[in-house]
């Protein structure tokens, strides 16, 4: 899917800031910086990957700056960033 650079979220505590950009290489590359990386780093990457793939995005460069967001918040921010990156409004239907 064609994507352009987009972002969603904030750097507030309990939130996550997601930046999506095109990736020249195949696959999703996630660069995660998290205050809870030790305990939840793998889980956060998993949620980001699953959310993007669920929206049909399997090639992108993702920079995620996490301040302890819960999974539901991560899904919401990733979805918003994906909608902005693709221009395809998943909530429209």
């Amino acid at each position: 899917m064609e994507i352009k650079t987009a972002m969603a979220g904030t750097l507030e505590s309990g939130d996550i800031f997601i930046q999506i950009a095109p990736n020249d290489n195949a696959g999703l590359h996630i660069d995660l910086d998290s205050t809870v990386a030790y305990q939840f780093g793998d889980q956060i990457k998993k949620v980001i990957t699953e959310t993007l793939q669920g929206l049909g995005i399997d090639q992108a460069e993702v920079k995620a700056t996490d301040k302890g967001a819960l999974d539901c918040t991560i899904r919401a921010r990733v979805t918003a960033a994906a909608v902005r990156a693709t221009g395809k409004d998943v909530w429209a239907d």
Partner: peptide
């Protein structure tokens, strides 16, 4: 339940 299971600390 809210946060999920944390991975063990290294």
């Amino acid at each position: 339940k809210i946060i999920g299971d944390p991975a063990p600390l290294p």
